Simulated scan of single mutants.
Amino acid sequence: MGRRAVPDRVPLLPTTVVGSYPVSEWLERLKTDYFRGRMSYGQLQDVHDMAIKAALRDQEMAGIDIVSDGELRRDNDIDYTLARMPGIEIPETAKDFYFDYYEARLAGPPPEPAGTSPLGLAADLAFTAAQTTAPVKFSFTGPFSLSCRVHDRGGTAQRDLVLAMARVLNAEAHALAEQGAELLQIDEPFLAGHTDQVALAIDAVNVVTAGVDVPWALHVCYGNRYARPSWEGHYDFLFPEVLRAGVDQLVLEFARKGDDDLSLLDRYDWPGALGLGVVDVKSGTVESPQLIAARIRRALGHVPAERLVINPDCGLRNLTGPVARAKLAAMVAGTALVRAELSALHPESQGATP
């Protein structure tokens, strides 16, 4: 830590998304057609390009400061990356529904990086960055969660597999930085279901981020499979291990869970920025700007404004397009209310960023 937690060119209380964006019914059908062998890979990529451009326009029109590609090339939170991981074998690549998980296995020794962009994610960032003038957050699933979907490790210890995957992701992160990445985020959606493995997950995070000098975020949620949490609990399982993570920002959910866990940031003196979840992505109810503003004000009692980033709890994939757009607009409007209040109180602080 010690670097900036967000790109330079954003305002105080920058707004962003966690990563994923809604997948409309027509896109679901086309993706599923591909996984059933009814569409070529080239055709699917054309569809993805169009969908990403639309998602970027939606975010820009809502006033989001740091946008994402909506993770719209990915079938779910695991498989797009896992299927590209060296040494991982997917015996059956067909799926009944695009969002289903593959059954994966380790085909030989633990994976080793191969090439300058071993997973090909740098090309995804290049396409996205070419479509917008806004800063882009680029996210990818972390090595611990990826390992959780490898059901046959062939005798390799989980720790060895996780750290090997982390080295591949580190090579990819270097490629992303070379491509001009302004904010990289590691997602660990499975960690809340394996709270006894936090030390291993943080060890792996530090391998991923090593030597890559860009702002880094770590997103930990309680799962968002079909708009339902996979686990329940509190973020105390992350501490104090997360204090040694080589990241500049923690991205956590608070809208659905409430603010109880904000006190953990005080108790453990978290020194970085907080990506504050203020939008419940598991509910179709659109929050009012006033409710968003109230959630931000409560967080300001624990984290100073210059270290707060405003985002939904998790990805928006399971919401409809109209609901997601309305929630993002409300989030931007609620953030604007608090910015105006802070400007009136401390005009000299405007423009400061984490």
Rank of each mutant, 00 (worst) to 15 (best):
A326P: 01
G37I: 03
G2N: 10
A55I: 09
L300P: 04
H151Y: 15
G142Y: 02
S139H: 01
F35L: 13
E188V: 03
T209A: 13
R298A: 09
H194L: 11
P215Q: 09
E178V: 11
A344G: 14
D152Q: 12
G351W: 06
V279A: 08
R74M: 02
A171F: 11
A273I: 00
R339T: 07
Y34I: 06
R307W: 04
L274E: 01
L319D: 03
P91Q: 10
L119A: 10
P22F: 00
Q179D: 09
L125I: 04
F35P: 02
A255K: 07
L319F: 07
V309A: 09
F237C: 11
A201S: 13
G301S: 10
W216E: 05
D49Q: 11
N76S: 13
R307L: 14
I66R: 07
I310M: 00
S40R: 12
L308D: 10
L30N: 03
C148I: 02
A340G: 13
T320P: 09
E92V: 15
G315S: 02
A51Y: 06
Y80E: 14
F237T: 13
A344H: 14
A55R: 02
D75H: 11
D260S: 08
W231A: 01
G258I: 09
I202E: 06
A201P: 07
A340Y: 12
P143Q: 10
A171W: 05
E178P: 04
V6F: 09
D46S: 13
A305D: 02
Y268T: 12
A273D: 14
P7K: 13
V150I: 15
P91S: 02
E60N: 00
E25C: 01
P111R: 00
H48T: 03
D313C: 05
